[in-house]
Nucleic acid binder design. Structure first.
Lengths: 145, 145
DNA sequence: TATTGTTATACTCTATAACTATA
DNA sequence: TATAGTTATAGAGTATAACAATA
């Protein structure tokens, strides 16, 4: 659901973060649809492509429960984008690796997502966009307690 | 669930927005708990306090469905923070107004939330925090198509 | 005993469809 | 006919608890 930001809420950090994310997802959905995945699945592919991980390890990186990871891998496997392989050293683990189709999908979908992000940040201009991303990176990390 | 931001995802706008919001909610929860409300309910109180609105009008401002609004008002009414009043001019509408307890809760909870936001943005410093909020305001608004 | 993957289950948040009362 | 509020229902997305296989 799209809607205007009421002036009353325009200074609310939580409200703004939530709606900025929704706006981005609204733009990312159609951009990724041609590749048959959504933003969350693209993130999973990204994590798995760098180094083959067990489901548990991938879940930790993504910050989700291991039961959530099962469904995520099920979906990607069903699309032929990843494969599960029993780990020989520890047969409790599934190593999840991208298929050739998965690698291809990741490459194309990443490009599409980058384009969406650039267009999303475009209203800020290059310099401000850079500062914005840096600030966001600072804030997304667990706060220094 | 808290976790570190993996380097791989540290440049991902969507990932960062989502996790920044989660970090903020994690901090806001305990801060608002003493007042018996959560961040979303505080937002509802904020919108209703400015001008008495019908449920539909409030739902529009908040960007939620009117069926979602029913549950939201139910909860706040159950806590004695708002009251429903049939609108005399159009008896289909419920005007929702803050009770004295609601006004009091809004005042105290707003202060607590402001403190959380200030602390959340503190790592950026005053100037960067201001720029960050301004950028976020720009991005949260529906993009100029 | 502890860990990994899995399943069943439940909880939160939200929306769609259908009902009612009003207009 | 159209709108406001309500209810029932369903769909995401996520987590907890319990189980089997493995360590």
């Amino acid at each position: 659901m799209t809607h205007e930001v009421p002036d009353l809420l325009a200074g609310r950090l939580g409200y703004l973060l939530k709606h900025a994310q929704q706006q981005l997802m609204l733009a990312a959905g159609p951009a990724l649809a041609p590749f048959g995945i959504d933003g969350r699945e693209l993130t999973v592919l990204t994590v798995l492509a760098a180094v083959p991980l067990s489901q548990q390890e991938a879940a930790d990186q993504l910050g989700v429960d291991r039961t959530t990871m099962v469904a995520l891998v099920d979906a990607l496997e069903g699309k032929g984008l990843v494969g599960r392989h029993r780990c020989p050293e520890d047969r409790r683990k599934n190593i999840v690796e991208l298929t050739a189709a998965g690698e291809n999908c990741l490459r194309l979908a990443s490009r599409a997502r980058d384009k969406v992000e650039r267009e999303f940040l475009a209203p800020l201009g290059d310099e401000l966009a850079g500062h914005f991303l840096a600030a966001l990176r600072t804030l997304a990390v667990s706060p220094p307690r």
